[in-house]
């Protein structure tokens, strides 16, 4: 799927560089232990700026999903139907993503999935998930 590529800034660079290596990284606050996604410089729970980086296992389950049949954005007009989902990661956060490598009709809430970075698209790879 050709998609809008994510923008980088210094808060998120580690994340996208990890994706380009085929790795999914999360942040954990060194002060209060909160694991967070999406990445940001400051912990929203305690406002500490001390960050520990943890590599996610890449395994999770489908928390919810939708099969999109209409999207007027030029990048997605020819890509429907596609499955957008929240995946519940083992580490806690739920990540907005796509479920790929299966028929949309096979996706269900609770389906075990694993991260799949596919082919790098331009300067970045994007974490999608497939049934495990």
């Amino acid at each position: 799927m050709k998609h809008p590529t994510p923008g980088f800034d210094w808060e998120t660079r580690f994340y996208w560089e990890g994706c380009a290596r085929g790795e999914l990284w999360l942040q954990r606050c060194r002060a209060c232990g909160t694991v967070r996604h999406r990445p940001r410089a400051i912990c929203p729970k305690c406002l500490s700026g001390e960050i520990e980086y943890i590599r996610a296992s890449g395994r999770g389950t489908v928390y919810t999903f939708t099969v999109t049949h209409q999207n007027q954005h030029p990048a997605f007009r020819g890509a429907t139907p596609y499955v957008m989902a929240y995946v519940q990661l083992e580490e806690g956060p739920r990540i907005l993503t796509n479920i790929v490598d299966c028929e949309p009709g096979e996706v269900r809430v609770g389906l075990p999935v694993v991260v799949d970075f596919g082919e790098p698209e331009g300067e970045v790879a994007v974490p999608r998930f497939r049934p495990s």
């Binding site: 809008p4 590529t5 994510p6 923008g7 996208w16 999207n71 954005h73 997605f76 994007v126 999608r128």
Partner: peptide, 18 residues
């Protein structure tokens, strides 16, 4: 049905997924 764009850092966590 018209979202999906944007290159700011935050939208990178939603826009690529449609």
């Amino acid at each position: 049905t018209g979202l999906g764009g944007g290159r700011d850092a935050a939208s990178g966590f939603s826009a690529p997924f449609g």
